[in-house]
């Protein structure tokens, strides 16, 4: 048996045992790399690259109206998209294309719209509102992949993109 402070000890033994020391050495290196990847993935998850984190949340502002939503979603997980409307005059219209709803299930809308209609594959929800209003949409991803859609609030178009993980 030889010992060294740096190298892995070589053992001469009579056991019927295939140690494959070289493979162990390679394995320890790969393990370290693997741990690096695992911890990197954890940090990315904390940051929100896989959803529910600061990197995932995005806010778009146009004409005084804004929308806050999550860019990264997970399959069958719930998320929220909130529209903030300024200077509403009597009513608000929220236009969501059907293409968007193929990927995202609109679980509920708060407050409830007083009516809706679908024309040319675009569903429009109508709300009674005056001046400032918030509309909360509770979503659930029902398909994996990428979806980009233009959602209009009082004729203001917002380009919403989601990356949905399996």
């Amino acid at each position: 048996m030889t010992e060294n402070k740096q190298s892995v000890e070589t053992v001469r033994h009579k056991l019927q045992l295939d140690e494959s020391l070289e493979q162990h050495k390679r394995g320890w290196i790969i393990q370290k790399i693997g741990w690096g990847i695992l911890y990197s993935a954890l940090i990315l998850a904390l940051a929100g690259v896989f959803g529910s984190g600061p990197l995932s949340y995005k806010t778009l502002i146009k004409n005084g109206n804004s929308v806050k939503y999550e860019r990264f979603l997970r399959y069958e997980s719930e998320a929220e998209m909130t529209f903030n409307i300024q200077n509403a005059k009597d009513s608000i219209t929220l236009e969501i294309p059907q293409q968007y709803m193929q990927y995202i299930d609109l679980h509920s809308i708060t407050p409830l719209p007083h009516s809706n209609r679908t024309v040319n594959d675009v569903t429009t929800y109508y709300f009674h509102a005056l001046r400032t209003a918030n509309i909360h949409c509770h979503l659930m991803a029902k398909r994996t992949g990428s979806i980009t859609a233009i959602i209009k609030v009082n004729e203001t178009p917002f380009t919403i993109s989601h990356q949905i993980y399996p």
Binding site: M1, V11, H13, L17, D18, E19, S20, Q23, H24, G27
Partner: peptide, 9 residues
Amino acid sequence: GSPLIVVAD
């Protein structure tokens, strides 16, 4: 993987 001797003699 494979077994590894950690104590000898």
